[in-house]
Lab assay of single mutants.
Amino acid sequence: MQRVNMIMAESPGLITICLLGYLLSAECTVFLDHENANKILNRPKRYNSGKLEEFVQGNLERECMEEKCSFEEAREVFENTERTTEFWKQYVDGDQCESNPCLNGGSCKDDINSYECWCPFGFEGKNCELDVTCNIKNGRCEQFCKNSADNKVVCSCTEGYRLAENQKSCEPAVPFPCGRVSVSQTSKLTRAETVFPDVDYVNSTEAETILDNITQSTQSFNDFTRVVGGEDAKPGQFPWQVVLNGKVDAFCGGSIVNEKWIVTAAHCVETGVKITVVAGEHNIEETEHTEQKRNVIRIIPHHNYNAAINKYNHDIALLELDEPLVLNSYVTPICIADKEYTNIFLKFGSGYVSGWGRVFHKGRSALVLQYLRVPLVDRATCLRSTKFTIYNNMFCAGFHEGGRDSCQGDSGGPHVTEVEGTSFLTGIISWGEECAMKGKYGIYTKVSRYVNWIKEKTKLT
């Protein structure tokens, strides 16, 4: 034993070699072989497995989906700052455009905790909710729209109204504003409101030439003092309507412009014939205590009207009353817009006519005020429907199939267009061939041609 100890002390290297040989010859039971080890760690190889990531292109799944990435790591994937920024906006807080917040056709661009709407022409605001041009839906104005110097929408209202708090709607500024039905039992019968379409306001006024200088022999019209197929109006439903009495009662109609003036057809009036105007009328054979009678003290036909040349060209006249009318729910003026808007309103496509005229061709006159909704007829169809001249200051309205029309005794009465609950004068009943005849239409004086003249002559002093 002493000898062994001496050998170990003198030859430590020998001992180490012996131990190493023993270990190498022993069977290893701690580690699995290569094949079995792979069965336990069965993990798919990654895209760049075996390579240094710093030297390969980034992978979106590896960089940002398996674990949260930084902007720089995302930049490695896209290799483009702009594309990385677009991805980053949604990656950080989701897609803010998912709810489609942009209105009126706006395009949404996502941002971090926010979004941006790219608005089409005519709109602005956070969600493109603000109209900035009158060309689109009248700028959301209830009545009139004008573009300011910086191309912003400025709404306005006709006389007797003021802008509401929203700067879009119009509200009454006087007790009985024009064009409004205020009798409670008839307010439910107000005709369907007309909503502004998209309009090209630059070209809204037709490029028409008034044929002022045409000389033409007097034409022989049949029954051209021209509501057939209409309905009984309720008291106060058309408070701007008046009836004219002269040699015979209810020979023509008219509309209240203001307390002192009536507008009617020029062919209705004769110099030297006494005319009485009755406002607030409903049943011409009954006294309903809503009527107001006034005498006409002055007749002003349009300066281009000449019955000797043509009885229905420039067929418009103004009547001055001896005493002002007292405005109330049964006696209310009709609204008159400017030339541009009167023309736009007419193009809405349908209007209402009213009167006490004959209820059928050569038949009896109506006792109760009649009204009828009539569609506008395109000019080409209008011209083809008659052998008589249709001037540019006239328009056609009615039904091709016949059966409904204005008729004798309705002449001078109103053709009105309702705009968001307020009625505007767009025409004056003038003439036609018979009444409600198939293929024939009622012919009306186009008020847009005469609004400046009306307003100039009827100013209240």
Rank of each mutant, 00 (worst) to 15 (best):
E76D: 10
R449C: 14
E116T: 03
M437Q: 11
V277T: 03
V377T: 05
N138S: 05
E171F: 09
F176M: 05
K39R: 12
N59E: 09
K387E: 11
C128L: 00
S99G: 10
I112F: 14
C97M: 00
Q241P: 02
K438P: 14
G412L: 11
L211P: 08
S99Q: 15
S385K: 13
S220V: 12
Y371M: 13
Q90C: 04
D322Q: 05
G21H: 08
G412R: 03
S217W: 09
M437D: 11
L20K: 02
G236Q: 05
K137N: 14
G236T: 05
E129K: 02
M65E: 13
R404W: 15
I17Y: 12
D95H: 14
K293G: 04
W431M: 12
D322G: 06
C119Q: 00
K45F: 04
N295M: 08
I344F: 11
N113A: 10
Q185S: 10
R191W: 08
Y391N: 15
S255R: 01
L189C: 06
F71E: 15
V4A: 11
G355D: 02
D378V: 03
G253F: 04
A308V: 09
N304G: 08
V195T: 08
K126R: 14
V416M: 09
C382G: 02
N104P: 00
G160W: 02
R294P: 01
P301L: 12
I7M: 12
S114T: 12
T225E: 13
D198T: 09
K45A: 12
I336W: 00
V263S: 02
V377G: 02
E53V: 08
C134V: 03
G179T: 01
V183R: 09
E418G: 04
F360G: 09
V154F: 13
L244I: 10
V153Y: 08
C134N: 03
T158D: 03
W431D: 08
T85S: 06
S114Q: 10
K339R: 15
F251A: 09
E142F: 04
V374C: 03
T332S: 10
L211Y: 07
A308W: 05
N59V: 04
L20S: 02
N36F: 08
M394Q: 11
K51L: 07
S49P: 14
K459I: 11
K455G: 04
G439I: 02
I429Y: 13
C145I: 02
T287N: 13
V368Y: 07
F31C: 08
V277P: 01
G280L: 02
G106T: 00
I214M: 08
I40Y: 13
S182T: 14
T386P: 04
E340N: 09
E142M: 09
D93I: 07
D410L: 08
G355S: 06
A397K: 02
E286V: 09
E320R: 02
N113E: 14
G363N: 05
T190A: 13
P197M: 14
L103E: 08
W356A: 03
F360R: 14
R3W: 11
G230F: 12
N127K: 07
K168N: 07
T426A: 00
R358P: 08
E98C: 05
A192N: 15
K311C: 03
C435A: 03
Q90R: 06
E67K: 05
W118M: 01
W240Y: 03
N166D: 05
Q90P: 09
H400C: 06
R162L: 09
C119V: 01
L319H: 01
V326I: 11
E159I: 07
E129A: 04
Y47C: 04
I256N: 00
N135R: 14
E285D: 13
Y115Q: 02
G125E: 00
G253W: 09
T225L: 11
G105S: 05
I334M: 01
G402R: 12
Q143C: 00
E10A: 15
N203D: 06
N222P: 07
A308M: 10
I309G: 08
E72G: 05
G355T: 07
Y161W: 10
R162D: 08
E401W: 14
V277I: 13
D338G: 08
W240F: 03
D378A: 09
F121N: 03
Y444C: 03
Y391K: 15
Q96L: 10
P101G: 01
V154G: 06
T445I: 06
F360N: 15
S385E: 06
R3P: 10
T287P: 08
K68S: 07
V263K: 00
N38S: 15
V181F: 05
I7K: 15
F196R: 08
A397F: 01
N310I: 02
I316W: 01
I429E: 10
V248E: 08
G351V: 01
V257Y: 03
R83L: 10
I15D: 02
D315G: 02
S329W: 05
T218E: 13
G106R: 00
G230M: 09
F71V: 15
F55C: 05
C117S: 00
P375W: 06
N295F: 06
K146F: 10
V183H: 06
